[in-house]
């Protein structure tokens, strides 16, 4: 294991209550706190643990997005990534474009492993890892909650609807991580200082020969229908009574 590439997406922070713009052209992003996609943080943590287990693999954090995405890559460097690459574009990036871009980076970097979150908490698309694995013509293990590397092979336990599934894959491979794989470390102040000196390359999307295509046209973004506020009951007997009257029990 010489090199691990971790893909990072800049998203609205997990704790922000997202609101739709009144003109329905999108969600309000002005002044909103932006963070590393929480699933990608888990992916980075796993890469760092593989490195620290003695492989001493180089960990490269890669992101695609606006210039300010450097903030999230600095966070990744502070967590422990060795260097970072920002593929800069002002255009919105759909999963297929992201996968094509990450493929171009992977071809240059030749990592043994690519780790990323199973989905981003903004578009909830859950596509990029699978698309990247297909374009790279390499194995994929999605929704991974346990990972063991053994030479040129990996054994991955996946969280699936029926429970857990284990697969064995040859490396290089793409792994999309699930919540319970690990708990990401906290960044300490000295690490933030150190991160400022680590290399962060910025390249243009077009320099990779990828066009930021808009494959899917957004028509409008609306607020979801609100549920009516319900009633409070005083005790269990009344609760059972209400549910029986509704024909639910």
């Amino acid at each position: 294991m010489k090199k691990i590439m971790v893909c990072i997406k800049r998203v609205v922070d997990y704790n922000v209550r997202v609101r739709v713009k009144p003109d329905e052209t999108g969600v309000m992003l002005e002044g909103v706190k932006m963070s590393v996609n929480p699933f990608d943080e888990i992916a980075l943590e796993e890469a760092l643990r593989i490195k620290e287990r003695g492989t001493n693999a180089e960990v490269v954090a890669v992101s695609i997005g606006v210039a300010d995405t450097q903030q999230q890559l600095r966070t990744a460097l502070a967590m422990g990534a060795d260097r970072a690459i920002l593929v800069q574009t002002e255009q919105p990036v759909e999963p297929l474009t992201a996968a094509q871009t990450l493929l171009a980076v992977a071809k240059k970097e030749s990592p043994d492993l690519i780790l990323l979150g199973k989905q981003a908490i903004d578009d909830d698309a859950n596509q990029t890892a699978q698309m990247l694995a297909a374009l790279w013509d390499r194995p994929q293990a999605t929704y991974v909650s346990k990972l063991a590397i053994d030479g040129a092979k990996a054994t991955a336990t996946r969280e699936v609807d029926a429970g857990l599934e284990t697969i064995e894959i040859d490396l290089p491979a793409v792994i999309s991580v699930d919540l319970r794989l690990n708990e990401p470390r906290y960044v300490k102040l000295p690490d933030i200082m150190k991160a400022k000196k680590k290399p962060l390359d910025v390249i243009g999307l077009d320099s990779l020969g990828v066009a930021a295509s808009t494959w899917l046209k957004p028509v409008k973004t609306a607020a979801p229908p609100q549920r009516q506020k319900g009633i409070l009951v005083k005790d269990v007997a009344e609760l059972v009574d209400v549910l029986k009257k509704k024909g639910l029990l």
Binding site: L96, D124, A125, P218, P224
Partner: peptide, 28 residues
């Protein structure tokens, strides 16, 4: 490309899907 999580069909190529954990509904 792929459209994930179709929740309503508005036409042969026009659909609604949830984004931001269902806090917004995107027509695409």
């Amino acid at each position: 490309p792929q459209v994930s999580d179709l929740m309503a069909v508005e036409g042969a190529h026009r659909f609604r899907r949830p984004i931001y954990a269902g806090n917004a509904i995107l027509t695409v």
